[in-house]
Write a protein that binds this DNA or RNA. Structure first.
Length: 509
RNA sequence: GCCGCGUUCGUCUAGUCUGGUCUAGGACGCCAGGUUUUCAUCCUGGAAAUCAUGGGUUCGAAUCCCAUACGCGGUACCA
């Protein structure tokens, strides 16, 4: 039996889409679970849509996500690290290819596609077409005006003699090669996630296989490559479902065995349309820029369209658990709305599980973008100080970009109306007295005893029964805010000097 | 228009293949209460789906069949 092989085959059109991330993730989970080879191929057959630098970006995102592939295109560094066979790629600077089925970049396989396209013509499964785009467009307009399905009318197949064709070919007239779709046939296949799917070939158009610029269309390239690369499972988005019959016709015409297909449900906007830029972020890098952790993004996206079932109530899964539990046949059929609120929750769960050192390392770049941090005195920018702030904020963060945001008093001087200091019905005198009391308590604590535990214990002791009377003015004097972490925590972060200074100013007020 | 796919709380979903244990379970979000002031965390509880609608099969249907509606996708020399 052939080895199971899956591939991820993105187009270099800019960045890694969050939906593509879900697709690769499933590729990866499936491969790891079943011991399959996981191949990365680049489908750059549309020269108009190519965005320079996107292959490098794609690789970067995949490496960031920790989705390692076994074969295909790699970065120079990766190759140097652990690959033996290297074929230099000329297409994208800095990327190389490794594996016996290369090249893994479609623009470097042009002769292959032409060869098979011509073979199809010879066998009578395809034909040359010299129609100009203008004619095609007019034809489509007419057809849709007559409420017919827009389809090529086979002019070049039926109205052109072999002599005319040869002549045009000799004169190098611009032409394409079209698939001759057999009529009155039912194409049926078993989709791994959808079950039996049927199409009547009468509704499928004579698809262009080879474009006039010599590049193949997706349909030809994907079939040729998947076959030549021994791909056994094609996992892709649902938008490909309607063109699958074309692919199956091609496999048959070429005398090849089709792979298994698994069409994944779409990721949706809140209004249930296909996830789009207009309604939010779609690039994986947008989410990392907002301070979503990769483990959280992966965890979240894995659950969009799949779940482990089996009465499982847990929703936080490590990559290892995902691999262990993943099953392609449990993938859903219906599209899934991308609910950012749930992502926030998952992200906060992962933030809570970080060690303080990890959190500090990940949060620092976000601090460095904040004005309140940039303008803060240097003693409030030390690693030690930041870690204290983060120790307090850890359970309050949904995403790293929020860091320090609601606790700016840790970094800048505060200003507030004196009414803020009063707790409920307390009088001004009471407030002043309790502030004085806390000041006395805090002044007696030595620097080395300035810990969260000590502060809490001593202040609670001083507060006695009437906690609010003591604690509220203290907290307000320290933060200048209605809402904030507890006074013990804030005082601990601020340190003795700064805390006393702020209390002193409150007493003056 | 035509073709295809889909449809369980607002959202992600369990349950559907192998009808009864489902007066439909969990999670997010929301609401309320509690925990050593406020916020957050944590805990407890609550509201929330006549299983898209209609018809059938059956003693019995979220589960099987048919129809309809709605949604989405495709309908390019884009992927």
């Amino acid at each position: 039996m052939n080895k199971t092989r899956v591939r991820f085959a993105p187009s270099p059109t800019g960045y890694l889409h969050i939906g593509s991330l879900r697709t690769v993730l499933y590729d990866y989970l499936f491969a790891k679970k079943s011991g399959a080879d996981f191949i990365l191929r680049v489908e750059d057959t549309d020269r108009k849509r190519y965005v320079p630098g996107s292959v490098e970006k794609l690789i970067e995102s995949l490496e960031w996500a920790g989705l390692k592939w076994d074969e295909g295109i790699f970065t120079q560094k990766e190759i140097a690290d652990d690959r033996a066979t290297v074929t230099e790629s000329v297409s994208y600077p800095g990327t190389f290819e490794a594996g016996e089925y290369g090249p893994y970049v479609q623009s470097e396989r042009l002769e292959l596609y032409r060869k098979y396209a011509e073979e199809l013509v010879e066998k009578g499964h395809a034909y040359y077409c010299f129609c100009m785009p203008e004619r095609l467009e007019e034809l489509r307009n007419q057809q849709s005006a007559a409420k017919q399905a827009p389809m090529y009318d086979r002019y070049c197949l039926t109205d052109l003699s072999q002599e005319e064709i040869n002549k045009k070919l000799k004169e190098e007239c611009p032409h394409v090669i079209r698939l001759k779709v057999p009529k009155d046939e039912i194409i049926e296949f078993e989709d791994v996630v959808r079950g039996k799917v049927k199409f009547n070939t009468n509704t499928t158009d004579d698809q262009v296989l080879l474009k006039s610029d010599g590049f193949p269309t997706y349909h030809l390239a994907v079939v040729v490559d998947d076959h030549l690369m021994n791909i056994t499972h094609v996992i892709r988005g649902e938008e490909w479902l309607p063109s699958t019959p074309k692919h199956i016709i091609l496999y048959k015409a070429l005398g090849w065995e089709p792979p298994k297909f698994a069409h994944l449900p779409l990721l949706l906007n809140p209004d249930k349309t296909k996830l789009s830029k207009r309604q939010g972020d779609v690039a994986v890098e947008d989410y990392t820029a907002k301070g979503y952790l990769k483990e959280a993004i992966i965890n979240f996206v894995a659950l969009l369209g799949w779940n482990p079932g089996d009465g499982e109530t847990q929703e936080i899964f490590s990559m290892e658990e995902l691999i262990e539990k993943f099953d392609l046949s449990r993938v859903h059929k219906a599209g899934a709305v991308f609910d950012i609120k749930k992502l926030d929750w998952i992200n906060s769960e992962y933030i809570k599980r970080l060690s303080l050192d990890e959190l500090h390392e990940k949060a620092l770049p976000f601090f460095e973008k904040k004005d309140f941090y940039i303008n803060a005195p240097t003693e409030r920018k030390t690693d030690e100080y930041l870690k204290k702030v983060l120790a307090i904020e850890q359970e309050r963060l949904a995403k790293l970009s929020e860091v320090g945001e609601s606790n700016r008093f840790f970094f800048q001087d505060i200003d507030y109306a004196k009414e803020l200091l009063k707790w409920k019905e307390s009088s001004e005198e009471d407030t002043k007295a309790s502030l004085q009391k806390t000041k006395d308590v805090l002044e007696k604590i030595s620097d080395s005893d300035w810990t969260r535990e000590n502060l809490q214990n001593l202040l609670m002791e001083a507060a006695g029964e009437k906690r609010g009377d003591l604690l509220w003015p203290l907290r307000a004097s320290l933060t200048g805010e209605q809402k904030s972490p507890s006074p013990f925590e804030v005082a601990w972060v601020l340190g003795k000097d700064e805390s006393l200074k702020r209390i002193g100013r409150a007493i003056e007020k």
